[in-house]
């Protein structure tokens, strides 16, 4: 199955592989920070902000990622805000996955129970302090496996960055296919390459899940 085309063009594909990893690393880091922040905003005891946070989450969860990519790349480009493909892809993936991270972290916050929060508040901790020292350390720990699943989903979603010409794995695959016409070989190789990222991740997630379940 591994023929000449793959071996000869390995560096070309590996560049795409590296770009995929790089994009996911940047965007996932960003979405963790953003998602956690918005999750806290959603329960912040201030007027209006929780609602705005909810709007943000629902907008990014309920529209296609492809549309968001085009918006950031072509749409903003038409206004003279010309982002590089990488920047556009990273921002959009961050916002898109960030919305899912928000919901996940929120369920984690809900899981730790009201007593913790009441206790923290009653000894005089401010809301940000309660969140930082009491709620988030516990909440984030419970949602590590679902966050891992979000990361897997992001690896797959990052392929959509090919639509705005970011040279990640799928984009390189397409180019190689159009150059060599070795469709099966090239695409099977790409699937295999994606598997080498997602399978270890999902293995790690299920291990973690079992571990956390026993610990409870």
């Amino acid at each position: 199955m591994i023929g000449e085309v793959l071996t000869e063009n390995l560096p070309f594909l590996l560049e795409g592989y590296r770009n995929t990893l790089y994009l996911v690393a940047v965007a996932f880091g960003g979405s963790l920070v953003l998602g956690t922040f918005v999750a806290v905003l959603r329960i912040a005891p201030v007027p209006m902000l929780p609602r705005l946070a909810r709007v943000e989450v629902e907008v990014f969860r309920n529209t296609p990622l492809l549309l968001q990519m085009s918006f950031a790349y072509l749409g903003l480009g038409s206004l003279g805000i010309r982002l590089r493909p990488f920047t556009a892809a990273a921002i959009v993936l961050t916002l898109y996955t960030g919305a899912y991270v928000t919901e996940t972290v929120r369920s984690g916050i809900a899981s730790i129970g009201p007593r913790q929060i009441e206790a923290a508040r009653s000894i005089g901790m401010t809301f940000p302090k309660t969140m930082r020292l009491v709620v988030l350390p516990q909440a984030l720990r419970t949602v590590i496996p679902p966050l891992g699943n979000l990361m897997i989903a992001m690896v797959k979603n990052s392929a959509i960055a090919a639509s705005i010409a970011f040279p990640e794995l799928l984009y390189q695959t397409q180019i190689l296919d159009s150059r060599t016409f070795a469709t099966f070989e090239v695409y099977n190789g790409a699937i295999f390459a994606f598997l080498t990222i997602t399978l270890p991740l999902s293995f790690a997630v299920s291990r973690l899940e079992k571990k956390l379940r026993i610990a409870r």
């Binding site: 329960i43 929120r106 369920s107 916050i109 009201p114």
Partner: peptide, 19 residues
């Protein structure tokens, strides 16, 4: 708990992740 924190939509607190 979520209600106490001022979240309007408590039905959302559901995913299996919760606790």
């Amino acid at each position: 708990a979520v209600q106490g924190l001022g979240v309007e939509d408590q039905t959302l607190v559901v995913t299996e992740a919760a606790a």
